[in-house]
């Protein structure tokens, strides 16, 4: 219904749509664009894993144990990145591993973000005993080294991919809570929130419609950066045997299973490690670009 008005408006000096403006700022950071491209490629690969992977991830080829990658002597185009100790194709396992890492990473970030933002919002608005209880328990969680805390949680729940994901959610939670609370407290003091109260807005409306939309920028950035931390932590837990259990094609688990062959067949550990590195780097680059593009202080 706004179409007619918008149409008249879009003439002379109409400022660009927020999304267009965002893209203009984001584009200036070449690293961020590269990161975005890599993330999109890997996502596409993960979604299409069943189609593009040359072999099934669990298929064991007894005739090709520890076969080197194609460009080395003894390599063949049948297994481009070589095979592992029981003859599984490493490329296929990495492609299916992207599925595991990305979906679990997404799950972890979504859960931590939703719960963390909710807690931060409540803490920022209550400013009393409830605030103290929430923030001090977050401080306790931050005081412990994150991987150690995750190990403790998995030790209690038992090793599995889902429990590892849950542990990583708990580890990431305090960052989201603190970030949201800080943003809420800054925004809450502004005149537009007071104006909303004067026109009769209740607590629910103030929290979700007035204040929250103005706090999303730092949370989005933290979400992107948290994604890379989640992938890394999950790989670490997998490596320690506390995350995904074999034969799941998870990158960290692949690393730990192949550790004993590092002298004889370097490709077995190198390629899963590179996959972790590339994904984490791409998300970090993208997160940095997002921060620059979404930070109003850096604009104009």
């Amino acid at each position: 219904m706004n179409m007619a008005v918008e149409h008249v408006d879009s003439g002379a000096a109409a400022p660009p749509h927020p999304l267009v403006e965002f893209w203009q700022y984001f584009r200036q950071n070449r690293g961020a664009v590269l990161g975005l491209a890599v993330v999109m490629t890997i996502t596409l690969v993960a979604v299409l894993a069943g189609v593009i992977a040359p072999h099934a991830p669990h298929e064991q080829y007894r005739d090709a144990l520890l076969m080197p990658p194609v460009w080395l002597d003894g390599g063949s185009w049948r297994f481009v990145l070589g095979t592992d100790d029981i003859g599984r194709d490493i490329l296929s396992r990495i492609i299916f591993g992207a599925q595991v890492s990305l979906s679990i990473g997404f799950l972890v970030v979504t859960l931590a973000l939703v719960v963390g933002v909710a807690l931060g919002l409540v803490a920022g608005f209550s400013r009393g005993a409830l605030d103290i209880v929430i923030m001090r328990s977050m401080d306790v969680m931050l005081a412990l080294p994150s991987l150690l805390l995750a190990i403790v949680i998995v030790a209690i729940l038992g090793p599995s991919l889902m429990n590892a994901a849950l542990a990583v959610v708990v580890v990431q939670l305090p960052h989201f809570v603190r970030l949201t609370r800080a943003a809420v407290i800054t925004e809450r003091a502004k005149d537009y929130v007071v104006a909303s109260r004067v026109s009769g807005a209740g607590l629910h409306r103030l929290m979700f419609f007035t204040v929250l939309p103005n706090c999303v920028a730092p949370v989005i950035v933290q979400g992107t950066l948290g994604f890379s931390t989640a992938v890394l932590d999950l790989a670490a837990l997998g490596f320690l045997g506390l995350g995904a259990q074999p034969p799941t094609p998870e990158w960290g688990t692949m690393l730990s299973n192949a550790l004993q062959f590092i002298q004889r067949a370097w490709w077995v550990v190198t390629f899963p490690g590179l996959a972790i590195l590339i994904v984490v780097l791409a998300f970090n680059l993208m997160g940095d670009g997002l921060r620059d593009a979404l930070d109003p202080k850096l604009k104009r």
């Binding site: 005149d191 537009y192 104006a195 004067v198 009769g200 209740g202 939309p213």
Partner: peptide
């Protein structure tokens, strides 16, 4: 019956909302 106009016209308008929904908010609530 009692409404307010603030000093800082930059801080007193919600930056994420269009003018239309800023003006309509009191009507939506009341």
């Amino acid at each position: 019956q009692v409404q307010i106009v603030f000093q800082d016209a930059y801080g007193s308008l919600n930056p994420r909302k269009k003018v239309g929904s800023i003006l309509e908010e009191p009507l939506v609530i009341n």
